[in-house]
Design a protein around this nucleic acid. Structure first.
Lengths: 165, 165
DNA sequence: TTTGTAATGTTATAATATAACAATTCAGAA
DNA sequence: TTCTGAATTGTTATATTATAACATTACAAA
């Protein structure tokens, strides 16, 4: 397990380039293992999403693609669906947006802390939260297929800015 | 506190009429207390949403309104926003839909168990889940403004149906 | 009765997402 | 190598969800 369990809010010294290239390697491996093709289109969109380190909308992706030629919404949505299926990106429902997954290839829902001010996002996989939800569902005899936890608020940096103004 | 802390999946003997009329009374009281008008339009849409006991989309509400005369989307969205502001309905983000709130007038986010088969929904307010999320946010120095927990899966009834077929 | 604010109506359009079918690509079989 | 079927991508059209901008109406308090 070389992947971190969570991606907290990024610090200034984050190395985007290294981050992206290790994510790319992981993605290739996962697709190979599952016998799916990691095509040029998929690679391109994967990179677009991963490079942001922020939630990015389908139409934002589309716009970037269109700078280099024709492209239409279904292409983008299909590819994002594929990347989700491969557990390479997450969809953030409260934002209608996508973000790179910090544990590529492993089936998990994650919990997301989303900063309303700067739009930074932290992906967590906190067992405490997961098990609290599972225990509650169990108690009601409910069978979970997907567990969405999205928390809006202020990240540490924006909190400091807000309190100092 | 005469309101229940949660609305689990409804049993067969649920009395819709009584349920709606007590919700209506609560709604009137809350608006009066906050000096906001509970107009005819707001009352009508509140009733439409409450009567379903299921998540209902804005355009479904619109369609029902249009059976009795003209109506346009902004009217519906504005009214649903108002009802949310008064803590009378919840918005279910994963469904783009609305549902009556089981603790009208009290600020809370709730947790929702949503059946993918029959679209029944249970609203919970489980302290275990809430505090797990809060503890996690605290640990990262994140300030919560809204906490969305939506769980997709199978309700007890649909589980039984699924396993017996 | 006036008057200002809140509420609602109206028109147009933005933003998000998918259906349906055509064309292309590619790995493996022949 | 060529063929073939499945997977992938392209293309067109349209469905679904949501809001901007401004006009009109209703209502409470002066």
């Amino acid at each position: 397990m070389s992947q971190p369990l969570s991606v907290p809010f990024l610090s200034g010294d984050h190395d985007h380039q290294a981050c992206l290239s290790s994510a790319l390697q992981a993605a290739e491996q996962i697709c190979r293992r599952r016998n799916r093709r990691f095509t040029e289109l998929r690679r391109k969109i994967f990179c677009l999403v991963w490079q942001q380190h922020k939630p990015v909308g389908a139409y934002q992706v589309l716009e970037i693609l269109q700078r280099e030629g024709r492209a239409a919404p279904p292409t983008v949505y299909r590819t994002l669906d594929f990347l989700q299926e491969m557990d390479l990106v997450h969809r953030i429902i409260s934002l209608n947006a996508y973000i790179g997954c910090c544990q590529p290839g492993s089936r998990h829902d994650g919990q997301f802390l989303i900063c309303e001010a700067c739009h930074a996002l932290a992906e967590l996989n906190t067992p405490l939260v997961t098990s609290a939800v599972e225990a509650t569902a169990d108690r009601l005899d409910f069978e979970i297929t997907r567990n969405m936890v999205e928390v809006l608020g202020l990240c540490p940096a924006c909190r400091r800015k807000a309190s100092s103004s």
